[in-house]
Design a protein around this nucleic acid. Structure first.
Lengths: 199, 199
DNA sequence: GGAAAATATGGCAGTCGCTGTCATATGGCT
DNA sequence: AGCCATATGACAGCGACTGCCATATTTTCC
């Protein structure tokens, strides 16, 4: 990797971190791109070159966690049962939360205080659900119903979202592993009372 | 209801319908609020008074459908088992789709062609999931685990989203009732292979 | 039915997110 | 050192969105 790419990766991180600090200090809405650029000592145009959107500056942190989760999933051998491979996804999320607690709490405080950001987060989850569904289909080599793949991917993302949300709502004062275990047990022992077909 | 409210409701509808037509005709991004205001014969400021956001002009249509679904849920007697009450939600969505096919296909074409709109849609689903979870908790009078309520609400919204998405992807050429039945059967007969706790 | 209070409307100015363009600076290669 | 590729940053401009205020319309009260 050349010097050029190293520097770019560094400024990329620095811009996001600088923005993050400003968002924490004075709020998301009250922070302009110009301020971020000034604080990061780059031009405003450069900020946009790394992050196409102001929202992306915040969402990128969540995206990193989801990327790790997807990598964990892809790393599972295809021979492994699907359920166990998906378990690796939840494990990865738990691990991310466990090792970045303080940072993530600050991050979700930003999300919480800025209603406009929720859309970006929801959209991110949506696109990863799509990706996961596609990956499940590939993994099972088209031997499963696309509807099944979509539902499974959705369920998995739900577990992640519910875990993260419960953890953040409790201000990180509970063990993430406990929440994860309880959530998964709920999903297994008590059948979710989904509507029955042709009631 | 006074004359004033009637007129306001009429212009409210008219603005959204006018915007819808313009979006269909020339695309979402290439339509400015100014154009919408001109076509609807109101000031641009008035458009914003009815719809706080350009996105809201599109999302409002989906919101109407979800409102109907939620009303159907709330109309179910509290004594009814939760699963059956939730069935009413899915029924309502199927009914909405069945009776507004053409319009909805055009609507989802707009969503499909405009990547930026996805976030608003995802956010809408997210907020309704929250509402549904809260409503389930109230209905069961706090006798269920909040995690359970969250997961159940999420599952229900998933069913809705998967149904709608499958229907639209197929260009409405399939019976919505068939998709709904198949989806619900999948959820019941084949257990979704969610990761097992402490694998 | 008319005056007054209440409120919906629309225009104007201004901020900010975001984009296209282009000259300049910086790193990579011979 | 010198050439090429590309990263940078400035500038201009568009459009979404907001606060403000004068005007018009509806309701209410007499």
């Amino acid at each position: 990797m050349g010097l050029r790419e190293v520097k770019m990766e560094r400024t990329r991180r620095f811009i996001a971190d600088t923005a993050f600090d400003l968002f924490v200090a004075q709020g998301y809405d009250d922070t302009t791109i110009e301020q971020i650029a000034a604080a990061a000592e780059v031009g405003t145009r450069t900020v946009y070159r790394y992050y196409s959107t102001k929202e992306a500056l915040v969402v990128s942190f969540v995206e990193n966690g989801l990327t790790a989760a997807m990598d964990a999933f892809l790393a599972q051998p295809d021979a492994l049962p699907l359920a166990e491979a998906l378990h690796a996804v939840v494990d990865s999320v738990e691990h991310t939360i466990g090792t970045n607690s303080a940072r993530l709490l600050a991050l979700y405080e930003i999300f919480d205080k800025t209603t406009g950001l929720r859309a970006g987060l929801a959209d991110l989850c949506w696109s990863w659900r799509q990706r996961l569904a596609q990956e499940i289909l590939r993994r099972e080599d088209g031997a499963v119903d696309p509807l099944f793949a979509a539902l499974t991917a959705a369920s998995t993302m739900n577990v992640i979202e519910v875990i993260v949300q419960t953890w953040t709502v409790n201000g990180g004062r509970v063990q993430i592993a406990d929440i994860g275990r309880e959530t998964l047990e709920l999903l297994h022992t008590k059948a979710i009372p989904v509507p029955t077909p042709a009631g």
